[in-house]
């Protein structure tokens, strides 16, 4: 078992190294640098440009910059985000928890709702409940989430004013509110972006969970459970679900990268100041250290989350399968 952990760790490190290198190389191939917009005007003397570029190492050959960047990275230094006038670590330190909050809440809600939907569908297999929920979850996958976000923002936010349309906190003297009011305010702002993301997660989870449950429902031990005189709900929840949930958790791990990607769009639409919005701003400003850090950290997040879901899936896998 410890050996397995070591392999997984090495694996995760390899992933991050590959991603870091490829993003660095690709950005090197791209035109422009963070100072292009600010300094490359005709009225800026060449000496000033050279001075600023030298201060941040942009005058060095790409190979050496990569070595420096990688060396700094191993020390935990991510560089300086010129567009924010702060270190990358500070920017990311602010943004990352917000993204974690958004993705975590969406994942938790979506997973629970998705499993619940699948349970109802299995209980009423081939009846109207199954069909209606099946159509809804199909829609939840087929309709792009940025559009759901837009609709939610326009109607629930702007039209009916039920929820705020942007940001993660009320303006003005909100900072002076008592703690529970600030938490309530945060939940209120979180509702739309997390809800939209959770909807997308729930639809995908429900579709896979339903298929897995229906496959398990054909097993002999389900018949045994029914022969005991158990009610259909007990049969599904106590006997089918524990045997059907493992693959869905593993699959969720595989789908996590695309969830993180989806969160980027959602953050942009709702102005949620997390990693996604940071990435967009950094891209516009060509702030390479920040772009690199954002992509790298999103990858790390996906890798970590996947390792965790893999471990959970392994743990809940049917013992029989593990034995064979």
């Amino acid at each position: 078992m410890p050996r397995e952990i070591v392999t997984r760790l090495l694996h995760a490190i390899a992933v991050c190294a590959v991603v870091a290198t490829s993003v660095f190389v690709l950005i090197q191939c791209a035109p422009g640098d963070p100072f292009a917009t600010a300094l490359d005007g005709a009225d800026v003397p060449p000496s000033v440009r050279a001075e600023w570029r030298a201060r941040y190492g942009f005058d060095l050959p790409p190979g050496e910059r990569f070595v420096r960047w990688a060396a700094a990275l191993t020390r935990g230094e991510l560089g300086y985000a010129a567009s924010r006038h702060r270190t990358v670590a500070e920017v990311v330190g602010d943004a990352m928890p917000r993204t974690l909050l958004l993705v975590g809440v969406a994942l938790g809600l979506g997973f629970a709702a998705g499993v619940g939907i699948a349970l109802v569908q299995t209980r009423h297999h081939r009846r109207w409940q199954d069909r209606v929920l099946g159509a809804l979850t199909l829609g939840g996958v087929a309709v792009p989430e940025f559009l759901v976000a837009l609709l939610a923002m326009t109607w629930l936010g702007a039209r009916w004013r039920l929820f705020p349309v942007a940001g993660m906190g009320s303006l003005g003297d909100a900072g002076a509110w008592p703690l529970w009011e600030r938490i309530l305010d945060l939940v209120w702002h979180l509702a739309l972006p997390a809800g939209v993301l959770a909807l997308a997660v729930a639809s995908r989870v429900a579709r896979h969970q339903r298929a897995a449950l229906l496959a398990v429902m054909r097993e002999d031990y389900i018949r045994t459970a029914r022969a005991k005189g158990l009610g259909e709900w007990d049969v599904i929840v106590r006997h089918a679900l524990p045997n059907a949930i493992g693959p869905v958790i593993a699959l969720l791990g595989l789908a996590l990268p695309s969830l993180v990607g989806g969160a980027v769009l959602i953050e942009r639409i709702f102005g949620w100041p997390g990693m996604g919005l940071t990435l967009f701003d950094a891209l516009l400003a060509r702030d390479y250290p920040l772009i690199l850090a954002a992509v790298l950290l999103a990858t790390v997040l996906a890798v970590v989350a996947r390792t965790v879901t893999d471990a959970i899936a392994e743990y809940v896998a049917p013992r029989r399968a593990r034995e064979r």
Partner: peptide, 24 residues
């Protein structure tokens, strides 16, 4: 029928491995 199953009439199935829940 459910109230009778298991209490008044019960069954032993053929394949004792697959007839038991592997996770319980």
């Amino acid at each position: 029928r459910r109230a009778l199953r298991g209490r008044r009439l019960s069954i032993v199935f053929q394949e004792p491995l697959t007839a038991l829940n592997p996770r319980m």
